[in-house]
Each structure stands twice: as C-alpha cells, then as structure tokens.
Design a protein around this nucleic acid. Structure first.
Length: 362
DNA sequence: AAGCCGGGGGA
DNA sequence: TCCCCAGGCTT
C-alpha cells in the first residue's frame, strides 16, 4: 500500500491540532512508566470515561509498582471490580511481581522486556514504549484502525490479519521519529473525538484534506468489517444459602475460568432437561459437595457479557447435608452481607447483593 | 487464524 | 437492539 500521502504535512496538521485539542486526562500528568502502564492496561477495550475513576482510585491504593506487587491479589481484584476483563488485573499483579523480582522494581525500558510482561501485547508495548520512554514505536488500536482505514479508503476487512499488517505498516511509515508518543496519542484522540464510528465530525478534522473516505463522501463506510453474530442467551441458577447464624455461602471462581478469582453465589448453567431449582441443587452438589433445599425465588438479574447474555436466577436455599468443599471452585466462605464488601464480585452478583441488602432493611 | 474474554454507553 | 471501545491470550 504505497500511498501518495504527504507525510510531513499530515504529521504537522495532526500535531498542531492535538496541541490545542487534547483532553485533560489523569494519565497525561506525571508520566511515570507505572502510570502509563496502568492507563494502557485499563484502557484495553475500555472507554476513557469509564477508566478515569478506576485509574485514580487504583493509584491511591497502589501508589507504586512495589506496593502493587506486595498487595494480595484479592485487593487488586477488588479495585478492578466492575471494570471487566479481570484477567487484566491478574496479569498486572503478576507483572508487578516480576518487575520487582527481575528488574529491581523499575519498569523495564527495552521494548522486548516490556512486551514480555504478562498482559502486554503489541499495542500496549508500543504505547508504553513511545509514551514513557520515547521509543519510535507505532500503536495500532481501534481508533487508529478507523482513522487510517478512512484516510486510505481501505477496502480490506479490518478484522483480518492482512488488513492489520497493512495498517501497521502505514502507522509505522507515518510516525514522526522523535515525536512518536505524541503522534500516537494524537491519532487516538482524533479517532475518539472527531473520526468517530458514526457521524464523524469531518468539518473540523485536521486530516480531511488528506482523507480518501472524506473525498468519496461517506466516511462511515470504513472501516470495512464483517458483522459479528449475536450472542446466545443462557439461564443460570445461583444459590443464596443461609446458615443458622445468618451467614451466606459464597464461592471463589477458579483462577483460569471466566471472571477467574472473583467471588460469586454458587450455581451454574441450567441444562435443557431440568428446572432452575434442580439446576441449583445439582450445581451445589457438583461444585461443593453439599445437599441443599432450594426455596423461594429472590431476584432474576439480566446481564450481558461480551459473548453471551444470561438471566441469573437467585433462590433462597438451606443447607441440608454436608460441609462445603472446594471441588469445582477455588475457595468458599460463610460471610455476612457486610463482609461481602471485602470480596470482589462480578456485576450480576453485585445486583443480588444489593437486593439482599434492600430486603434486610424491610 | 480464529475464538475467547466484561461491561458500559451511544445511536 | 446492535455496535464499539487506548487488546491480549490460547489453541
């Protein structure tokens, strides 16, 4: 894809625009490698507006890499609670430990060392390298894919590897040496605020005079991509088992599973040949080795994951026989409603907790 | 090379 | 409802 793009003029137009139009974001102040790293991980598949609050709170809890490495994983997950993609938090914690063990507690400067950390892929390595260390590395994220595919009216499906390679090559080519971090951020900022997925603000775009999609008249045609098929729907049962002292049984999900390491009301997916009550009883037998009586329905929470949606049906339950064992879960506890604040839960289970707290008031 | 992994917000 | 988002890991 050799393009007659006037590289120098394009760079100047974008950098001049960015100098005036950049948003005031917390990770743009005091750019230590740790602060840049944390921002890049939090911003993986996550919108800026959603990340800001988490970012500030996280840094208050874990102000340094050493503090993060020394913290229990549960505390790290608790700070991540509600942000999604919890593997990111586990990788962040593991990487902090590695930085302390192998790099003396200082974030590594070499691109290959950065890329080798858990949770750091091609995008984040280039972002951290350019923003924190001044390396000439070009980033390619969702925003930049959109900007560059419009700029060149790229007909390839951008979900395919071939298109990604072309776009990465173009990003590398356009990068002004010595100002890489600034240019990477400017491209992302343009994608986030002007070259938006729908109704792009071409009238105010500093690159419109270079943009083939704009010249064609319908920039929203790019980037080309195949439509994702819609997610399946599942029904899931959850047990709120209360013991004689009023404590509630919670279980920790296995490390490698979805929502790994988070806590939940034990339960699982409903099979086609059973009622939700039977499902809950079966799951607690399989996961924890206990017999329970499944009682009243409490609440049904509808929740959307990236790849499926679910109705989570919570029922009040009693323990009939046995002592819980961690068979298909990592751990378990009997806790009060107030003690649940100390454990990280996913969004859906948090709604069940909120419901139980409202019921308690009555 | 493709599938898997959360959650939220905009249109 | 559908799409998108400062992607990375696993197979």
């Amino acid at each position: 894809m050799t393009l007659p793009l006037p590289k120098r003029r394009l760079q100047n137009s974008l950098l001049r625009w960015f100098a005036i139009n950049l948003r005031d974001l917390p990770w743009r102040k005091n750019r230590t490698p740790y602060r840049v790293w944390l921002a890049e991980v939090m911003l993986q598949q996550t919108r800026v507006d959603q990340a800001i609050g988490y970012y500030t709170r996280f840094l208050e809890h874990f102000p340094t890499i050493r503090a993060l490495a020394a913290a229990p994983l549960r505390d790290v997950l608790k700070q991540w609670e509600g942000l999604g993609y919890y593997t990111r938090a586990r990788h962040l914690h593991a990487a902090a430990k590695r930085i302390v063990a192998k790099h003396g507690g200082r974030f590594p400067r070499e691109l290959s060392d950065i890329r080798a950390l858990p949770g750091i892929g091609p995008y984040s390595a280039a972002a951290i390298g350019s923003l924190a260390f001044g390396h000439n590395a070009a980033t390619l994220d969702g925003n930049i894919i959109r900007v560059l595919s419009r700029l060149t009216a790229l007909e390839d499906d951008v979900t395919k590897l071939r298109a990604r390679k072309k776009l990465q090559a173009l990003a590398n080519e356009l990068l002004p040496k010595g100002r890489a971090g600034e240019f990477n951020e400017a491209l992302m900022e343009l994608g986030a605020t002007v070259c938006t997925p729908r109704k792009p603000l071409c009238a105010v775009c500093p690159l419109k005079k270079f943009c083939r999609a704009f010249a064609e008249g319908d920039p929203e045609q790019y980037p080309r991509k195949t439509r994702k098929k819609k997610a399946p729907h599942k029904h899931v049962g959850a047990a709120v088992v209360v013991n004689k002292s009023g404590r509630i049984l919670i279980a920790q999900r296995q490390e490698t599973s979805m929502l790994g390491g988070l806590w939940e009301f034990p339960g699982g997916k409903q099979e086609s040949d059973e009622t939700i009550e039977q499902c809950i009883a079966r799951e607690l037998k399989e996961e924890m080795g206990i017999d329970i009586a499944v009682g009243n329905h409490l609440i049904t929470v509808r929740h959307a994951f990236s790849h499926f949606t679910m109705d989570l049906h919570a029922h009040a339950c009693r323990l009939l026989r046995g002592r819980p064992r961690a068979i298909h879960c990592a751990d378990w506890r009997w806790v009060t409603l107030d003690e649940m604040d100390q454990y990280p839960f996913g969004r859906a289970d948090q709604q069940i907790i909120a419901h139980l707290r409202i019921q308690r008031q009555k």
